[in-house]
Design a protein around this nucleic acid. Structure first.
Lengths: 212, 212
DNA sequence: CTTAAATTCTGAACAGTGTTAAGATATGCT
DNA sequence: AGCATATCTTAACACTGTTCAGAATTTAAG
C-alpha cells in the first residue's frame, strides 16, 4: 500500500495495477448490464480495465469462473436484500410478503446479474462442493426461516415448509424471469414491476394461509 | 420429387439436398439438448447436416434467426401440449391444474428448447410485429381461457383474470426454470419434477379459489 | 429440348472470440 | 541487495459468426 490516506488504494495508474480482480468484476457488471448476457465478452471486460486479453487469467480460471464469481456475489447481495426486507416490525406474514417483493425487485434492478445467477452451465457436478450452490441456499434460507416463523405463529398452513418454500420461490422467481426475458420486459417499468409483484405475491400467500 | 413412394422425400443423399431447412432445425434441437444452450454453435449444426458453414445462411438470416425459429416451433408445441392437458372431461378447476402440470412437464422434457423460448435477445423491438411474441401469447391464451371458464363456473375468484393468469403462469414458469437452471436440476428426475409440480400447482390454486 | 434465371451450396476469407505459452516487469521477502 | 513470486503483455492457436464470389443444381420459359 502506497500513499494510504485512502482506504481503497484508489486505482490510480498503477502498473501491476492495484487490484485488477475487483476492477474486472466491476467492468464485467457494467458490461453485462449494457450489452446483455449473451454477447458478454471477456476480452471487452479486459479492454475496459485497460488490460491485455490474457490478464484476467491471472485472477480467474476462465470466463465461466469470472461469471460464477459474479453470480456468487449477486447471491449474497440478494440475501442481504431479502434480510433487509424481513424487518422485525412486521408480522411473519408481512415478512413473507416483503421478502417476495424484494426478490422481484432485486431481479428487476439487477437484471444482468440475475440472469447470471441461474445458468445450468455454472452448476458444479453433483457431489462437488459448490460455493454458488451454497450462496443460493443462503438466499433460500431467508425465505425458509420466515416460513417457519409464520407457521409457528399459526398464520399459515402447517404443511411441509419445504413445499411451501418451493411454491413461493417458484412464483417470485417465475415473475422475475418473465419480467426479464419475455416480451413483457420491453414495456416493464419499475412501478409496473412492483404492481405485478404485489398482486402475484399476495395471491400466492392466500394459498398458504392457515384455514381454521 | 423422385421416387415418391414415401411421403417425406426421405433425405437420401440429395445434393441440393432435399429440405436442408428442416434438417438444420432437427440437428439444432439435438445439439442443443446434447451440448446445452451456451456453447451451441451454428457451425456444428451445419457439420451435423453435412453441409458447409455458410449453407444455413440460405435458410436463416443468422444464428439468432435459427434459434428464434426453434423457439417459435417450441411455443406451438407447448400450446398443443397445454390444449391436450385441458380435456373436456375435467372440471374447469381440474383443467387449470392439468394445464399447470403440463407446462412444467414440457419444460422438463424439452429443456434446451425451453431455454431458447425465453431470451430477451430474441424479443423484437417494441412496436414491431413479432411471431415469437404471438406464439407466446397463444400459449398463454390456453391458460387465460381456462381461467375465464373457471370464473364463469364460479370455481375461482372473480378478480382480474389477467392477474390470476400472471400468478399461475409465474408459478409454473418459476418452477420450470428452477428445475432447469438451479443446482436442483442435477438431481431432478421425471417423477420428482412431477411431484414438485403437483404440490406447487395445487398450492397456487388454493390461493385463487372462490371464497364463499 | 434448350437456354436463361433463380436457388442452393461451397471455398475462402475476415474480424472477433476464449485460451495458452513464453517472456517481460514489478512486488515482496530475507 | 538479490531471489522467488505474482502480475501483466505479446503472440499465437483453434474456433466462431458472417460475407462474398463463384460452382452446382433446379426451375421456368421459349
Amino acid at each position: 500500500m502506497s500513499s494510504s490516506l485512502l482506504e481503497h488504494p484508489k486505482k490510480t495508474e498503477r502498473y501491476h495495477h492495484g487490484d485488477l480482480k475487483n476492477t474486472l468484476l466491476e467492468a464485467a457488471r457494467e458490461l453485462a448490464n449494457e450489452i446483455g448476457v449473451d454477447n458478454f465478452t471477456l476480452r471487452e471486460v479486459a479492454r475496459r480495465a485497460n488490460v491485455s486479453p490474457a490478464a484476467p487469467y491471472h485472477h480467474f480460471l476462465d470466463k465461466q469462473d469470472l461469471i460464477r464469481t459474479l453470480a456468487i456475489e449477486a447471491f449474497t447481495k440478494l440475501t442481504t436484500a431479502l434480510n433487509n426486507a424481513k424487518q422485525k416490525k412486521h408480522t411473519p406474514l408481512q415478512q413473507l410478503e416483503h421478502i417476495g417483493m424484494a426478490y422481484v425487485n432485486f431481479a428487476y434492478t439487477h437484471q444482468a446479474e440475475f440472469r447470471f445467477m441461474f445458468r445450468r452451465e455454472l452448476c458444479a457436478a453433483i457431489g462437488q462442493p459448490d460455493p454458488l450452490e451454497v450462496a443460493g441456499i443462503d438466499a433460500q434460507s431467508v425465505l425458509y426461516n420466515a416460513i417457519l416463523e409464520a407457521q409457528a405463529a399459526k398464520q399459515i398452513s402447517q404443511d411441509n415448509p419445504q413445499e411451501i418454500a418451493l411454491t413461493l420461490w417458484s412464483v417470485v422467481h417465475g415473475l422475475s424471469t418473465i419480467i426479464n426475458e419475455s416480451p413483457i420486459s420491453k414495456t416493464t417499468t419499475a412501478t409496473s414491476a412492483k404492481q405485478m409483484a404485489q398482486h402475484v405475491v399476495q395471491a400466492s400467500i392466500q394459498g398458504i394461509l392457515n384455514k381454521e
